[in-house]
Design a protein around this nucleic acid. Structure first.
Length: 585
RNA sequence: GCACCCGUAGCUCAAUUGGAUAGAGUAUUUGACUUCGGAUCAAAGGGUUCCAGGUUCAAGUCCUGGCGGGUGCACCA
């Protein structure tokens, strides 16, 4: 789904010359493809952008270096750039006036970042964050939430109409386990606050209890399992004392979810509950069975995908109840029917890979045409130094524990100096924003396919390549803007001649192509790298090139304008990552 | 047994998706205008990109075969 940038003045200028070269040599000029080959030179001094001439070599039967020389001629008349061959590459250096007037000035006046980045894409749904009720939300869930949210923002930035959705699991065995234990083994009243967390702990205790029972008293376990089946039947029937208990406790978990989403700044367009699709999905499977599209095997219904090396996809247990895959079929149907989407993304743990392959294949086999537009966006899971995290085992780091520790640490280590000077409200807000920056950036900067080994003490150290580093750079520019104002006269961009100024501009012109690239490969980590590089380039510039002590007003104005442009890009980049930019910190 | 993911500096990670001399953070060593905000900046050392073949003008990246770590594979979600 690679898209093309619409309004990039630098690339447009390069493409103009390239197009003529292609025509003169009777080569097919596909703008988007050629555009993809424009890159950043490895060293700032080489130029601002580069184009490698390798692919011409075979067609024209000349070495790339010779072609680079020839290609140079196509830019001889350009008033805004100089083309310089270096080996197989043609490096482009733009005039500072051009960069200033056609790019930086438009960021400063707000027009550039508001315009459409590219042509609109198809309508997509991005489903993420599938928390279970009756379980505790832990740091593992956070990776999913951060990724999903950033992807939603990224797709929106790249002109895709996006419907964000979540699919919480409020029915199933885990609920029965929790409710049974709550009713039969817990005799205390629920706490006045944090009921959701308390309920999650009961789930863990229930599991430990049942595991223990399996060892010590298998007969009793069988009885308990029968009771749990009865609980599930009550939930399905929609009446009975367990149904009432389910309704009440479910709400506790939902409150916890809402609290987490509020902290994260996440909102969903659609909440689709497992309990909504549970019964219809079972009905659908039965219909499909009668149509002969699904087979019976060992008392259960499902589809044999063994020939495609995908095993057996069970869709109805022998007791007639459904499974996760069952619900996912109905979920897929609803997504396309109710939301009129054209593509459906599932941001789910990589361990579900086989599951989704099975579900999508079954959808295809039962004649669901959009099966090909269902895409599993897999990411690797978060584990603890001593192994996998699981609410079943109870060895989790609850999300709010991380949040509280992080906010406390930030106030102690970094905000103590403002105590008394800032209002309590601002101190609390800033601690919250910086904690969000640290946590979200930490989750997003790692390539989604790499697992994260979570160590709370390490996470609390925030320095270097981190969210707060970028936020800090932002707030410093904010402070710069508070103290200096643009005077409204034309900026003399040509005064920006320092290497640090150049480097900063060179990074900034990559912003839009970075967004498209990150979106095309579904990796917000590409955007975290970008905002980090840009912030680093700014800090270097800030250190080398003073605004207030620039020596003359025109230079000060030009540097201020460059700072403002950087600020605008950083703020938008952070916003897409879901990271707030504190005014001061 | 089969399938999938990962393997890059002491440690944690990048690398424009096949392109220029493999870069950051951290740790270590050293330095910076008495600070337009030091949560900053600069410098040094640190590499057989797990191994062996192959494809290519070009491989950390693709293919084959190993090794190591992790995960998944019928009534859990």
């Amino acid at each position: 789904m690679a898209q093309k940038i619409l309004n990039d003045p630098c690339r447009a200028e390069i493409l103009k010359g390239l197009e003529k070269f292609y025509q003169d040599h009777q080569l097919a000029f596909v703008k988007a493809e050629v555009d993809d080959q424009i890159s950043q030179p490895p060293q700032s001094e080489f130029g601002d952008l580069a184009f490698g001439c390798f692919q011409f070599s075979k067609l024209l039967k000349k070495s790339p270096a010779v072609i680079a020389q020839q290609l140079q001629d196509y830019f001889k008349d350009s008033t805004c750039l100089k083309a310089q061959p270096l080996g197989p590459y043609l490096n482009f250096s733009f005039s500072i006036e051009f960069l200033g007037q056609s790019y930086l000035a438009k960021i400063v006046d707000g027009s550039f970042l508001k315009q459409d980045l590219c042509l609109p894409g198809p309508k997509v749904m991005i489903e993420y964050s599938q928390p279970n009720t009756h379980k505790e939300i832990h740091v593992g869930h956070l990776r999913n939430a951060c990724l999903g949210n950033a992807l939603v923002n990224l797709y929106k930035a790249c002109q895709f109409p996006v419907v964000s959705s979540t699919f919480p699991g409020d029915v199933g065995t885990h609920v029965a386990k929790c409710l049974w234990y709550l009713k039969n083994q817990i005799h205390e009243d629920p706490p006045a606050e944090k009921k959701g967390e308390w309920l999650g702990q009961i789930y863990s205790k229930s599991n430990l209890f049942l595991e223990d029972l399996a060892q010590t008293d298998p007969q009793k376990l069988t009885l308990v399992q029968q009771e749990m089946t009865a609980i599930l039947k009550q939930l399905e029937a929609g009446s009975g004392e367990y149904f009432e208990l389910w309704r009440e406790t479910r709400q506790w978990s939902i409150q916890l979810m809402e609290q987490v989403y509020l902290w994260c700044g996440i909102q969903f367009d659609a909440w689709i509950w497992e309990s909504d699709v549970d019964r219809p999905s079972i009905q659908w499977i039965q219909d499909l069975y009668h149509q002969g599209l699904i087979q019976k095997s060992k008392g259960a219904l499902g589809v044999d995908l063994e020939s495609q090396n995908l095993g057996f996809c069970m869709l109805l247990k022998s007791d007639g109840t459904g499974l996760y895959a069952t619900k996912d079929l109905e979920l897929a149907r609803r997504k396309f029917k109710d939301h009129k989407i054209e593509k459906s993304f599932y941001v789910v743990d990589i361990r579900q890979e086989l599951h989704f392959k099975q579900v999508f294949r079954v959808l295809e086999m039962i004649g669901f045409p959009q099966a090909k537009d269902c895409i599993h966006l897999a990411y690797n899971f978060v584990e603890l130094p001593d192994g996998a995290m699981s609410s079943r085992k109870g060895n989790i780091v609850p999300l709010l524990t991380l949040v509280d520790s992080m906010q406390k640490r930030i106030r102690q280590d970094h905000l103590a100096k403002y105590e008394g000077e800032w209002s309590e409200q601002e101190l609390a807000l800033t601690a919250r924003q910086v904690a969000q920056g640290a946590i979200k950036y930490g989750m997003l900067k790692i390539d989604p396919l790499k697992k994260i080994v979570f160590n709370l003490q390490e996470w609390l150290k925030i320095e270097g390549d981190s969210g707060p580093f970028v936020q800090y750079s932002c707030s410093r520019i904010q402070s710069l803007r508070d103290k200096n104002a643009l005077l409204g006269k034309p900026v003399r961009w040509q005064l920006l001649s320092h290497p640090a100024e150049r480097k900063l501009i060179q990074f900034s012109i990559l912003y839009q192509s970075t967004l498209l690239q990150a979106c095309a490969v579904n990796k917000p980590s590409i955007l975290t790298s970008f905002v980090y590089d840009l912030a680093r380039a700014f800090n270097y510039f800030y250190h080398e090139c003073s605004v207030q002590n620039a020596g003359n007003e025109d230079l000060a104005q030009a540097r201020l304008a460059l700072s403002i442009a950087t600020h605008e890009i950083l703020k938008q980049g952070l916003q897409i990552l879901g990271i707030p930019a504190p005014l001061r910190m």
